[in-house]
Structure formats: structure tokens, C-alpha cells
């Protein structure tokens, strides 16, 4: 399974939650599969999806799911100790780990080689780290939501992309629509 298939599988679960979605193809795929006002699409700033999601979860009580990638987490590896030491039980970090920089042409990441992001997250002090195969992601994500505990999920999937358009929505519109959904 590739990332877009994982997103298609979990879209019914994401629909009712606040979602912060990573830059590039993940946001474009989620936008195409199931655009919702509860989705915050990152149009730039690689690496900060997990930080935005944690800040959002700490600031208000609704559940927040950040959809991140292995390459983006590697870009901002300092996020994992911050997450571990600032527990927000309404926060789920879902790392879709396809071992490649998908948006830039599937160059391999170190997470697809010797580096285990689930082991890194555990070593950083994250208490609930679950590594799963792509097809198990909906069940693992639902269990994390039901647990009411901060969870880091590392979903191992194949690399590969589908063709789709960029997001042309204005960033202020995305942000305003999202903030209205957060407050509703």
C-alpha cells in the first residue's frame, strides 16, 4: 500500500477530528480525498506539522491528529523530545513512513534504511509508540483515539505517488476556516 491508499482508508476516521496535514503530496491527497474545514493543510514549512499539531492540542481540548512523513520528522527531529515532555492526551502523531521523500521524487530517507523512527520516538521518551503495517492503520488509529492517551503511530508503507493537483486555496482561507472549525 502507498500513502494515498492509507489516507483513503483512514479518511472516514479523520473526518470528525482536527487534522494537521504535512506539506506537499500528503496535503494534496487528503484535500482531494476528503476536504474538510477541520483539515489544516500545510502549503510550506517542511517539518513543522508535528509542532503545529502539538501546539494546537495543548491549547484546546479537542483531539488533534497530525499526519506527518518520515522525511519531515527527520527534518525536525527535535520535535520528538518536545512531544514526549509535554504530554497532550488529545494528540496523535501519525507518521506515514514510506522510507522516501515522496513529494520530491522518492529519494530514499534514512528511515527507510537503518534508522527506526519508532525506536527514536521511544528513546526520546514518548510513552505510547505503535509501529504498524499500512493495512492495519485504521484499526491502530481508532484504538489510539479511543485510548485518550497521546500516541505516536509509525505506519510503514510502500513509497509511491499518484498524480494530483496542487492546493490553490488561499492560506488565510484555510487558516480561518480551520480556526472556525476548532471553535465550533
Amino acid at each position: 500500500m502507498i500513502r494515498s491508499e492509507v489516507l483513503r482508508d483512514i479518511a472516514p476516521i479523520l473526518r470528525d477530528q482536527l487534522v494537521v496535514c504535512n506539506i506537499g503530496l500528503p496535503s494534496q491527497e487528503l484535500h482531494m480525498i476528503d476536504d474538510q474545514p477541520t483539515n489544516f493543510y500545510m502549503l510550506g514549512t517542511m517539518g513543522l506539522a508535528s509542532s503545529i499539531g502539538l501546539g494546537l492540542a495543548l491549547a484546546q481540548p479537542k483531539k488533534v491528529i497530525t499526519i506527518d512523513g518520515d522525511g519531515s520528522v527527520l527534518t525536525n527531529l527535535g520535535t520528538l523530545p518536545t512531544i514526549a515532555n509535554n504530554v497532550a492526551d488529545n494528540f496523535i502523531l501519525l507518521i506515514i513512513d514510506n522510507g522516501s521523500y515522496g513529494s520530491t521524487g522518492d529519494q530514499p530517507t534514512y528511515a527507510g534504511k537503518k534508522t527506526s523512527l519508532s525506536a527514536v520516538a521511544t528513546a526520546c521518551g514518548c510513552d505510547n509508540v505503535v509501529e504498524c503495517q499500512a493495512e492495519d492503520t485504521p484499526a491502530v488509529l481508532q484504538a489510539a483515539l479511543d485510548s485518550d492517551r497521546m500516541t505516536v503511530i509509525v505506519c510503514k508503507c510502500d513509497s509511491g505517488n499518484i498524480k494530483l493537483p496542487v492546493i490553490t486555496k488561499d492560506p488565510v482561507v484555510i487558516r480561518d476556516r480551520f480556526m472556525t472549525a476548532v471553535q465550533s
Binding site: 517539518g47 513543522l48 509542532s51 501546539g55 495543548l58 491549547a59 484546546q60 525536525n76 518536545t82 476548532v182
Partner: peptide
Amino acid sequence: YHIPSNKEDEGMGLCAGAFMGGKRP
């Protein structure tokens, strides 16, 4: 709520999230 960050761009991400969650950062 004081949240030390490991790098300043990470900190700005945290602030962006907090702002969208209704807190002034």
C-alpha cells in the same frame, strides 16, 4: 504554559498551533 523548544523554527510551529487553538503565543 511554558514550552521550551529545541530549535526556534520548531517553536514557531508550536506557536502557530497554539494560536489556531485560541491561545495567544
